[in-house]
Design a protein around this nucleic acid. Structure first.
Length: 434
RNA sequence: GUGGACGUAGCUCAGCUGGUAGAGUCCCGGGUUGUGAUCCCGGUUGUCGUGGGUUCGAGUCCCAUCGUCCACCCCA
């Protein structure tokens, strides 16, 4: 058995991907842009465990959601405790605020990045381990923070050059208003039970609001005639939502009110929003979130309003690369070609000296031998602007040769003590020519 | 969890109605005993995803299984 497993080709766990160097610059540019922007808006990073007690997610996300019912990576540890790899970020961050006593009358603007885990069938833009940057604002009851978070996301898209996203928003009202609406909706759907398709009948049991989401065209008429959540909002939520919409208009951020936007996690209330794209196939949500005013008290903390959103890094990376931003890792500045025993030994020493003299410059020393032809081939493939040639011949004369690889110019020599300056000059000349 | 398409060299792929596995690329060496990218010559690379079956003979047909992709469901 063990032998069989070893002879099988080694593979990653299903739905878990390696991010290879060819893609890493896209990841880094997203992470860098987000980190800088969040700092500019006054959000601080928080890091929380990937693993929490299963109970936390059940209580936060909701017992009868798809995520909790069938998508969690849950196991029992050696102590007999049921633990779960986080399927989303908010629950853990709220738990951290409670456990660390950070809530008493305090407000927090936080962000958190890392992997999430959901046991779903993988497809384009959907993986079992995926990465999110989530942003949470806790202790702010008014609509201003809702708008600022949306503006923050809009600015991030602009900075990243992401254009193919649009904003949809809705209000779910307070938990009480939603409960009242749900009853009316269930009454309506029960009255038309014979027109419901199989999916909708199933949803009617678990999460009736999701019936409104059906993509079945035959359900269209029935759904259009159904009571609309927006018409059943409590007065306070209505005012709140109107304020959000008005402020978005004032900021010039385009949006569409989608009364059928309900979100899959139970903790949302009032404002919910979703940035969607038409560029990624079926998995079109790039970033989404909303208010969760009841969540903290539900987890046993002092009742505190909250709002947040999460963006899916894999999906942003896909948008970025699709928009044709080629993610080339930075090339070396100088590739050092060595020949002969003495020169090879001295090469290491020389490059370390050059790194001292020219911090920030990218030097790549030829490693692992090879003849001149091979070394120059590597120098070329490294993308280096300059080859530095150090052979026993040069060494004997106390010089090194510099050859530009990206422009038509002759090879020159420089005495070793002047080498750093000569490199800077040669690189400056190359920069002008490209 | 359901459905469809697809698994051949490190990578991209060809391989006809079954007849002993190919190209390009990459890598290495040589042409140039110290000069890349271009050009020319040469070389290495495979349990044809895995296991069974049919057949004189299976990369090719059948079954199972694993994996990938896409869609449903759900979501970032």
């Amino acid at each position: 058995m063990l032998e069989d497993e070893l002879t099988e080709q080694i593979q990653p766990v299903r739905g878990m991907n390696d991010v290879l160097p060819a893609q890493i610059t896209a990841w880094q540019s997203i992470e860098r842009a987000a980190r800088e922007l969040l700092g500019e808006y006054g959000y601080q990073e928080i890091r929380v465990p990937v693993l929490e007690r299963t109970e936390l997610f059940k209580r936060a996300i909701g017992e009868y959601t798809d995520v909790v019912e069938k998508e969690m990576y849950t196991f029992t540890d050696q102590g007999g405790e049921s633990l779960t790899l986080r399927p989303e970020g908010t629950a853990g961050v709220m738990r951290a605020l409670i456990s660390n006593g950070m809530l008493r009358g305090q407000r927090h603007k936080l962000w958190c990045a890392g992997p999430m885990f959901r046991h779903e069938r993988p497809q384009k833009g959907r993986y079992r381990q995926f990465h999110q940057i989530s942003v949470e604002a806790v202790g702010f009851p008014g609509p201003d923070v809702d708008v600022e978070l949306i503006a923050l996301a809009a600015r991030l898209w602009r900075r990243l050059g992401i254009a193919r996203v649009r904003l949809e928003i809705n209000s779910l009202g307070t938990a009480e208003a939603r409960r009242a609406y749900r009853e009316r909706l269930v009454d309506y759907l029960r009255a038309h039970h014979e027109q419901l398709d199989a999916d909708s009948r199933r949803r009617l049991q678990g999460n009736p609001l999701r019936v409104l989401d059906s993509k079945n065209p035959e359900m269209r008429a029935l759904i259009d005639a159904a009571p609309v959540l927006t018409d059943h909002l409590d007065a306070e939520s209505r005012v709140h939502f109107q304020a959000v919409c008005a402020a978005l208009e004032a900021l010039g951020i385009p949006f569409r009110v989608n009364p059928r936007l309900v979100r899959g996690l139970d903790y949302y209330s009032r404002t919910v929003f979703e940035w969607i794209t038409d560029a990624l196939g079926a998995q079109d949500a790039v970033c989404s979130g909303g208010r969760y005013d009841g969540l903290i008290s539900q987890l046993g903390g002092e009742s505190t309003p909250g709002i947040g959103f999460a963006m899916g890094i894999e999906r942003l990376v896909a948008l970025l690369t699709q928009a044709g931003q080629p993610a080339a890792p930075p090339a070396a500045d100088v590739y050092i070609v060595v020949s002969g025993e003495r020169a090879s030994a001295f090469g290491l020493e020389l490059v370390e000296q050059l790194r001292d003299a020219l911090p920030g410059r990218r030097f790549e020393l030829n490693l692992g031998g090879g003849n001149f032809k091979a070394q120059f081939r590597r120098a070329d493939r490294s993308g280096a602007a300059l080859a530095l040639i150090l052979g026993d011949d040069e060494l004997a004369r106390g010089v090194a040769a510099l050859k530009p690889l990206r422009r038509d110019a002759g090879q020159s020599e420089s005495p070793l003590p002047d080498l750093a300056a000569a490199i800077e000059t040669a690189l400056a000349a190359t920069a002008v020519h490209t």
